[in-house]
Design a protein around this nucleic acid. Structure first.
Lengths: 140, 140
DNA sequence: ATCGCTGCAAACAGTTTGCAGTCCA
DNA sequence: TGGACTGCAAACTGTTTGCAGCGAT
């Protein structure tokens, strides 16, 4: 049993073919995919699939922590990445839009404690490093 | 001479009435403002002002580091904040959308060095802490 | 059988862009 | 004067929503 399917089931969500195939698409495609790319991948096996269902399921999966969302600043929307590893962050190239995973999170417990001022309770944080990848630096 | 006007001028950008009034609006309004709120504020003194000019100027100011942009995840778009202090980050309440400034940045030199793998050159980073503010925690 | 999920279609918002005229430097 | 900037209008894209029917449990 796949962990993602099991997680859905255990939290009371139905396991529909559409949900299975979204998860499959994220697992088998490139590391990152936009909602549109997920739709294209999914339609190879499921031509009826609609974009709104992709969005609905991606949102759900992100909410459940089963998928990570990467804010790209690009015009194609954010990237989605199946959560095979734990919490981490990414670099995003402002030129070509390519993203890469980092293997660490620089936010530590003491930072969270320091940021929880005035009764604010932190439940998540979002961090991206923006810049230019090696390829784009060579060109321009 | 205001630092923002001076910065525009020194970098070869023209100082138009629209630019002045956008800066004024950000300085005098609430700490954070959406593009729409900037437009409304600006139109009190400059009724002809158009939303696209607001966007163009906000984008420019953000690019020059004269304004900070806060990614809110809300439906009203991001917040903009005049850069009176240096680089810092924010908490954003996922319930009411309220943002607050933090007075520190948890990303240190060694983190940047560690993240610059494979020839990637970091030029900026974006970090928000999401959660629930004291008020929203009382209610819900 | 139920209630969540889906597809369809339409709406929606924030943002961007082309263009012709304006105006700061 | 001239290139940057503006306003107008329209388009564009990513995303969300209402609704009726379908299907996983």
């Amino acid at each position: 049993m796949e962990k993602w399917i099991a997680a859905l089931r255990s939290q009371g969500y139905k396991v529909t073919p559409q949900r299975r195939v979204v998860i499959e698409a994220l697992k088998q495609g490139d590391k990152f995919a936009t909602a549109q790319q997920v739709l294209e991948a999914v339609r190879q096996r499921f031509p009826e699939m609609s974009l709104d269902t992709v969005y609905r399921n991606l949102s759900l999966l992100v909410e459940l922590g089963l998928v990570h969302e990467v804010r790209t600043k690009g015009r194609d929307g954010n990237f989605f990445e199946i959560a095979v590893t734990g919490h981490h962050h990414h670099t995003v190239c402002l030129q070509c839009g390519k993203a890469e995973c980092l293997d660490f999170c620089p936010i530590h417990e003491q930072d969270l404690a320091r940021a929880e001022v005035g009764g604010f309770k932190i439940t998540a944080h979002s961090l991206e490093f923006y810049g230019y990848c090696a390829d784009c630096r060579k060109v321009g």
